[in-house]
Design a protein around this nucleic acid. Structure first.
Length: 408
DNA sequence: CATCCACAGGAAGGACGGGGGT
DNA sequence: ACCCCCGTCCTTCCTGTGGATG
């Protein structure tokens, strides 16, 4: 009886996916899909291409530095050019290879180096070695090769902010450690922080910035083209409309022309429509998608926070019931309270200060430094994300469920 | 106009657990 | 078996600071 019911339910789910009236090919909208066409990035493709094309003559392309806000196609253009470059090199019988490392996910020198190593088929353990050892292994592998090796470091500002520019210095000078005639190494650095260069040592700055390309953000009209381009391939013809595309484009344009966000939005809207058994995507679906994306993001981020950051959130949740924002000192007192109440030692205010900054960068809270004159300098802290989503994520932590229940 | 509050945030380093090479 | 390295989370000590107040 029960079993029969369940299989009926599943059958329904399966068949509704199989005969999806929405998606022709969902992968087209996935975040790591590299399209064949990149509308409104022709200039950038040309410029990146002309820098890297040197590789085809077996000479070292200049190091390249790419700026542009998130979702302006920096990564897509770079990977697109490199893919084509590798193909062309193959035709010409030239050895050109590249690694792509996103230093936001791989955010330590060791991880970056180990990614580079494994792309050269050098096996390294995920911990245990010194970075110097991994580096020499990379050098050894490169000196056995020929041709050009291009290292792409995406969101490089993250790495530098957290760990400094030492590895960049090493990597930009790797040529000196290689015997003449072996592989030539170029670095492509990608960042969305315009002030990033200021963080760099002068030597690194000049060597990394041999070439610089700035990617301007897309405007709503360009976003519309991009969305249409992909939507045509991803959805069945009747599913989408101008209205929906325009709405997605407008929402994303509001977020400084972030094409990735726009495409995500469209994909999730499609999923929402599918789940609702709708024949077409409506603006309502897009609105729901927008909320869902934000909600999922918050839950994911908050769930993986360390205990003390979660305690800070619990404290903030409580304090902002009565007032829109609080201050560092107030929050710290409240936090100490909660920590004690679940029997853990409170961390220092200095540490809490860092945790507040981290939460701010994650977009969960807003912390703005203000001076209140005689009453000192502090940060005004308020919630930046959806309250329920935060509570939901926090309540998954068994250590905190007590506190949350008491609160509400 | 100097003062002084309530912190911000840099620098250095340490404990600890995960994992090496030899 | 021994000593090494790394990343994470945290502490201690510190210098710096915008602007209301006296």
């Amino acid at each position: 009886m029960v079993i029969a019911d369940l299989s009926d339910v599943l059958d329904e789910v399966f068949s509704s996916i199989v005969r999806s009236r929405i998606f022709k090919n969902r992968d087209i909208l996935s975040p790591d899909y590299i399209p064949d066409k990149l509308p409104h990035r022709e200039n950038e493709i040309k410029r990146v291409g002309s820098v890297l094309a040197q590789a085809l003559r077996e000479s070292r392309p200049n190091n390249l530095f790419i700026y542009g806000l998130t979702g302006t196609g920096k990564t897509a253009v770079t990977l697109y050019v490199l893919k084509r470059l590798k193909q062309k090199a193959l035709e010409l019988g030239v050895s050109v290879d590249f690694v792509y490392v996103n230093t936001r996910q791989r955010d330590t020198p060791y991880k970056v180096l180990s990614d580079i190593a494994s792309s050269l088929n050098v096996r390294v353990p995920f911990t245990g070695l010194s970075t110097a050892e991994v580096y020499t292994r990379i050098v050894r592998a490169l000196s056995r090769r020929k041709g050009v090796f291009i290292v792409v470091l995406d969101e490089i500002d993250w790495l530098v902010r957290r760990k400094g520019d030492d590895i960049l210095y090493k990597l930009t000078r790797i040529g000196y450690d290689l015997p003449p005639g072996s592989t030539k190494v170029s670095i492509v650095g990608i960042t969305n922080d315009v002030r990033f260069v200021e963080m760099l040592d002068a030597r690194v700055r000049s060597s990394l910035g041999e070439e610089e390309i700035v990617f301007p953000p897309y405007n709503a009209e360009q976003l519309r083209d991009i969305l249409w381009e992909r939507a045509k391939q991803a959805f069945y013809p009747e599913v989408i409309s101008d209205d929906v595309i325009n709405y997605c484009a407008a929402l994303a344009a509001r977020e400084h022309g972030d094409a990735r966000r726009a495409l995500d939005l469209l994909r999730v809207a499609g999923e929402v429509a599918e789940r609702e058994n709708s024949k077409r995507i409506t603006i309502e679906h897009v609105k729901k998608a927008w909320q869902q994306i934000e909600r999922d993001r918050v839950i994911e981020v908050v769930s993986s926070l360390p205990l003390h950051a979660k305690l800070i959130l619990v404290s903030l949740l409580n304090l902002t019931l009565l007032q829109p924002y609080t201050t560092t000192g107030e929050l710290y007192t409240e936090y100490t309270h909660y920590a004690k109440s679940i029997g853990v030692e409170a961390v220092t205010q200095r540490r809490v200060s860092d945790l507040i900054n981290e939460l701010d960068m994650l977009g969960i809270i807003t912390a703005r430094v203000v001076s209140r004159g005689r009453y000192g300098k502090t940060r005004l802290i308020s919630l930046a994300a959806n309250r329920e989503a935060i509570v939901n994520a926090l309540s998954r932590d068994p250590r905190l469920s007590m506190l949350l229940r008491l609160n509400r």
